[in-house]
Design a protein around this nucleic acid. Sequence first.
DNA 1: TGATTATGTAACTGTTGAGATTACATAAAA
DNA 2: TTTTATGTAATCTCAACAGTTACATAATCA
Lengths: 140, 140
Amino acid sequence: MAVHVLAVLAYKEGDPVTSAMLAGSVNTNPVIIRRLLLSLQRARLVETRMGAGAGSRLSRSPGRINLAEVYRAVEAAEPFAKPARKANTACPVGHCIRETLNRVFASAENALERDLEKTTLAGVIGMIKATCPAIVKKTG
Amino acid sequence: MAVHVLAVLAYKEGDPVTSAMLAGSVNTNPVIIRRLLLSLQRARLVETRMGAGAGSRLSRSPGRINLAEVYRAVEAAEPFAKPARKANTACPVGHCIRETLNRVFASAENALERDLEKTTLAGVIGMIKATCPAIVKKTG
DNA sequence: TGATTATGTAACTGTTGAGATTACATAAAA
DNA sequence: TTTTATGTAATCTCAACAGTTACATAATCA
């Protein structure tokens, strides 16, 4: 969803967009969008102004925002499920597996982020336009 | 959790292990383990025999099972959240972003799996033993 | 200044998915 | 045939996330 919102902002090329308009595109509630924008603001990916005639826009050009940054800004939790209960420490495997898996998963997540780094928001826009070349109207 | 179970099986070096014993190590319920084992059976990673004195063991040696296989066997859902509602198709971005993101995410997931391929179960066991060299007792 | 517009944020309500639990039929070995 | 252990269904709990309503606050414009 975060990528969707940023793609719309990129599409609007700097014009401030309200959370209501973004919600219209994502087909959700403005509050959901605003909560998401808070995360993106913390990551310095978007800037938001309050008040009448306000809205949000990208802090940087779409070519200088990659999806790894978006992923890190939004993805609070680990991508790999952690066990609800602690493993049985009486078992040698259970006792030591946690730390080992953390290392392996950190490496895997790193690989994932490095792949996401290869795609910028501008690239996403380009792919969208290539996929749907006919559409020109800026509905929001 | 799947890796934990397989690590125990690898640790037991071919001895059949019951779901109750595995549940003891993971500190969960035998039924949870059995459901997990069903997935691992479908992926031909473990073999399970029913009846008295039965249990599960690895289908292959730990050195020939990598974590990408385990990931694929267990991870049913996409790692990236899909929107609950459909995007607004009246918006050009909303209309075409789905397919574009699917491509990007498929690439990222591929990168993740290629990283997981680098680690085998035997490697996990090795790391565990290196982390906790003192423990020898085979509790389960 | 005051009306308007839009964000920030709290509080509450679904909804969904994973794990947990209980129960029981079935299969295989002793 | 008794015992042991799996396969599987039904149900429960719980956490996370999306959705909704409501309202205070901030910024603009007439």
